[in-house]
Design a binder for these strands. Structure first.
Length: 268
DNA sequence: CAGATATGACAAC
DNA sequence: TTGTCCTATCTGG
């Protein structure tokens, strides 16, 4: 489930499992063999997350950068390390546990300068307390692109993916097609604060649940009747099913090659 | 078993 | 807008 909350959660888990001690790194599948050879045996000093990007910081200014893309997955466990099954791009083994990485879009050893370049091309991450949302609103306010695309654009906001973008727009009562420049400053602040609340809950729970997280006061006023027995999301992948707030059939469309969902009654 | 699908990102047309 | 990458899982026959 690789939206930003998953990556932050992975950074925490990997720190707890492996940081502070030397780790053995290899690549059973082979495609990360050269990178693994550079870092194996070093101390994994820390981990970090920025948007959907995960970093393993090794002693000696070597950083392994991982981007899960659409299919990437980590598996972790306590010792002993299991026999390799499937295609394992990267495997870590420390004295407290092990980790396997499959199917990432990116897995490479970088230097601090290269990491800084990645940070520089990302927008503010709602999960980072050092984030300044102002540049994101500046981008949105002068764009005619649809809000769904802008929220998913990692150079505007780092971390939200299709589910959070879809759901936060439902909670804000805005159609996915709303042009960025139609969003008021107050409307942006509501979305930013809601993303922070939703994604922090996502980190804590390990799943996306946009129905049970408290709405902002503005959204509560618009959608006060939440079905407590409803699903984890309001509209994502619920095409044709009744809206949890008003009962209207959830609509489905396509935008920039991605499926989009919205409630024709609650969103305008 | 083949085929479709997936929470992403990028290049190429 | 389409194709490509990477892998696992779910669907239908």
């Amino acid at each position: 489930m690789p939206e930003g909350h998953s990556i932050h959660r992975l950074a925490l888990a990997h720190r707890a499992l492996l940081a502070g001690r030397p780790v053995e790194v290899d690549s059973p599948q082979g495609r990360f063999a050269e990178g693994a050879a550079l870092v194996t045996g070093r101390v994994l000093e820390d981990t970090s997350a920025y948007g959907k990007h995960l970093f393993h910081h090794y002693a000696g200014d070597l950083i392994v950068h991982v981007h899960l893309g659409l299919y990437g997955k980590f598996a972790t466990g306590a010792p002993p390390v299991p026999a390799p099954a499937g295609l394992i791009r990267m495997r870590l083994a420390g004295d407290r546990g092990w980790l396997e990485l499959r199917g990432p879009t990116a897995c490479a050893v970088l230097n601090p300068h290269e990491v800084a370049l990645i940070h520089a091309r990302l927008g503010p991450d709602p999960l980072r307390d050092d984030a300044d949302p102002a540049p994101a609103y500046a981008r949105i306010a002068r764009s005619g692109a649809p809000l769904l695309q802008l929220i998913m654009d990692q150079s505007v906001l780092a971390g939200p993916g299709l589910i959070y973008a879809t759901e936060v727009l439902f909670r804000a009562g805005l159609l996915p097609t709303t042009p960025g420049r139609a969003l008021s400053a107050a409307g942006f602040t509501e979305i930013w604060e809601d993303l922070r609340a939703l994604m922090k809950d996502g980190v804590a729970q390990g799943r996306i649940d946009t129905v049970h997280v408290r709405h902002t006061p503005e959204a509560m006023r618009r959608a006060p009747r939440v079905d407590r027995h409803g699903g984890e999301v309001y509209v994502y992948r619920r095409a044709g099913q009744p809206c949890l707030v008003c009962g209207t059939a959830v609509a489905k469309g396509t935008m920039a090659g991605r499926n989009t969902y919205w409630c024709p009654t609650c969103q305008s």
